[in-house]
Simulated scan of single mutants.
Amino acid sequence: MIYGSIEAGGTKFVCAVGSDKLEIIERIHFPTTTPKETMEQVISFFSKYKVSLKSLGVGSFGPIDIQKKSKTYGYITSTPKIAWKNFDFIGELKKYFDIPIYWTTDVNAACYGEYVAGNGVGLSSVVYYTIGTGVGGGALQDGRFIEGFSHPEMGHMRILKHKQDLFGGNCSFHHDCLEGLASGTALEKRTGIKGQELDKSHPAWEIEAFYIAQCAYNTTLLFSPDRIIFGGGVMKQAHLVEKVREIFTDLLQEYVQIPAIDTYIVTPKLGDNAGTIGCLALAKEATS
C-alpha cells in the first residue's frame, strides 16, 4: 500500500505518492490556476494509483475550515485567490477517492514533516514558518497541532515597521502585517528585484531580517518552543538566518533563557521536501 501527498500552494501544487517509510516514489508539480484545471491534474495523477492508494494527506493554502462538524469542513474559505474562495477541496477529492483524507494547512504539513523526519525530531514543541510568496505558520506540541476554532494565522501577526522602510505593505487584508512586509512578494515590490537576484549587501535584507526576527521574538514569548524553523524561498538566502539571529538576540535582551541560538532558529533540514514528507506522514496518521 502507498500514501498520497497533496501540497496545495497558492503558486503551485505538488502531488506525490510514497511508502510507509515516507520514501517518495513519484512526485509532480504544476501551477495553481483555477480549481477546475488544477484539480483535474490532481485527480489524473492519483487515479493511476487508485488500487493501492491507502490514504491522502492534504496541506492547503488557506484560510481553510478544519472543524469536522462544520458544514464547510474541507473548504478553502476566505482566500484572496478569488477562484478558490469557498471551494470544497475535500468534497471534490471524495468524488473520486473513497479513502481517509487528512486535511490541514500547507505550513502545518511542512511543520509535521520537520517534526517526524527533520529538525524537529525528538523535540516536544516545534514552530514552523514559511516565508515565501506569502507567510504562514504552524505549531506542534507533543505531536498535536496547536489550534482552536480554526488553525493559527501567524503569518498575519502585527509587527513594528522598520524606520527606513517606506513600503506600505502587500497584504490585501492588513497591508503591513508580517506577510504584508516580509513575504517574497513584499520584498520584490519593495526593491523591484526578485529576492534570489538581490545582492546580499542590499539594505533590504536588514529590513527583512528585522521583520523575521520580530516574528521569532513574538513566537518565543507566546509558545516557548524548543525550536523555530523558517522555511520558504526567502530563507534560501544563507546569510539571512544569521541576520535574523543577531537581531532577535538584540530584541530579546535575555528576558528569557532560550536554547543555543544556532539550534533555536534554524532552516528546514528537509528543504523543499518538508511539506511532502509531512503530508505523507499525516496520510499514515489518517489510517491509524
Rank of each mutant, 00 (worst) to 15 (best):
D262A: 08
D176G: 03
I43P: 06
P203L: 03
G136W: 00
M1C: 10
N86T: 04
S172D: 09
I261V: 09
E23F: 08
G275I: 14
K95W: 06
N170R: 14
I64C: 00
K48S: 09
N218T: 05
E246Q: 13
I28L: 13
V244H: 01
S124D: 15
R158C: 08
Q164R: 10
E242Y: 06
Y129N: 04
Q253S: 14
P35A: 04
G148M: 02
I28Y: 11
V234K: 12
Y217E: 15
V14F: 06
F248H: 01
T263M: 14
L160H: 14
F173L: 04
V266D: 15
K243V: 08
T263L: 04
F89W: 02
L252R: 03
G271C: 05
L123W: 02
E37K: 12
E153M: 01
I146T: 06
F210N: 09
V42P: 07
T104P: 05
A213G: 10
G10S: 10
G143S: 07
C111A: 14
K200Y: 10
L160R: 08
S124M: 13
I25S: 04
G91S: 09
Y49W: 11
K243W: 11
Q67G: 14
A281H: 02
S60G: 03
E37H: 12
A109S: 14
P35D: 01
A286F: 09
F61V: 06
N108R: 11
Y217A: 10
S288N: 15
S47M: 14
A109W: 06
R245H: 01
E197Q: 15
T263A: 15
D262I: 00
V17E: 09
E242C: 08
G195S: 07
T267C: 12
D250H: 12
H175P: 04
Y3T: 10
I207S: 10
F149T: 06
L178Y: 03
K163L: 15
D272P: 07
I261S: 05
T263N: 15
Q253F: 09
I2C: 07
K71F: 11
T104C: 07
V241W: 04
D20P: 05
Y96R: 01
A16H: 07
K161Y: 02
E92I: 10
R144G: 05
S60R: 05
G232Y: 05
P225M: 04
K48G: 06
L187I: 09
W103E: 09
S47W: 01
F173G: 01
T79F: 05
T34V: 01
R144Q: 13
E179I: 07
M39A: 10
I229P: 00
G143E: 03
G184Q: 05
A260D: 15
I90G: 11
M154I: 06
L178C: 02
S5A: 13
Y3R: 12
Y112G: 02
P152L: 03
